[in-house]
Design a protein around this nucleic acid. Sequence first.
DNA 1: CGTGAAATCGTCATGAA
DNA 2: TTCATGACGATTTCACG
Lengths: 151, 151
Amino acid sequence: MDDVDRTLLAALQHDATQSYAALAGQVGLSTGAVHERVRKLREQGVVRRTTVDVEPAAVGRGVLAFVLVEANAWMGDHPTRDALAALPEVMEAHVIAGPASLLVKIRVGTPEQLQASLRRLFQVEGVTGTQTVVVLESFFERPLDPYPQTP
Amino acid sequence: MDDVDRTLLAALQHDATQSYAALAGQVGLSTGAVHERVRKLREQGVVRRTTVDVEPAAVGRGVLAFVLVEANAWMGDHPTRDALAALPEVMEAHVIAGPASLLVKIRVGTPEQLQASLRRLFQVEGVTGTQTVVVLESFFERPLDPYPQTP
DNA sequence: CGTGAAATCGTCATGAA
DNA sequence: TTCATGACGATTTCACG
């Protein structure tokens, strides 16, 4: 994992449809060498997958909210994880240190669906309360850029 | 934007490296028709870009935190947006309704870098306080799946 | 939306540094 | 190990029916 790999990752984040020849040009290597590097990055799990970034509002998911979930028991275990993963509107779920047990990110189509989602969250074992932050406008959401080095 | 398009979007989210022939098989159309549909989805901005999902810890971004930013003025304007966009550790920035003005998502490499990032947030014009939620473990982060219909 | 053809690209084997 | 080169098969891409 050197600077060339980081440059490749940044380039792929920006546009994963570009050819290996184009990538090769950016890093000054041959297409074969680039092909091999990208293959290894995938194999090592540095690149988890190639995906497509979809505009939420265009697919009926224009309402975004973050919910702090309070609980009366330890929720950092797999039953909780699975219960949340079963809810398709939950985009992210994190165990946190702070004023609550969990933080979840939710995308739905309407305020009514948000209400319904909160009702489902309350049905998850151990949940005693929620604090909801509704997003009015997203300034930006961008992909991770590799940091120059890891000291 | 019909069910075929939604199926294509879901398939591309799962794996954007698959060929048009493979996509065509999943929806029962020809490769040419699928090519045209995907081209239009890109053109319309439904597909914003094709990108690569990178493991944060592998590129020195293993520390995740959410920060509620309080302000003494309206922060839903472009100067604020630009100030936040200039900070590479800020992955997302949202204007919110709730206990604060903004919610930002931050990824850094170390707790020291998190501290440095909070210091930079305080230097943004109008910021009067922050409330930080540190993530201990992420259960999951997954791409948006299109909802069946938008009533 | 399907078909077919042409240009481009991904992929791999080989050899060199 | 890592890289360059070259060749083959697959894929993208586009015009036409």
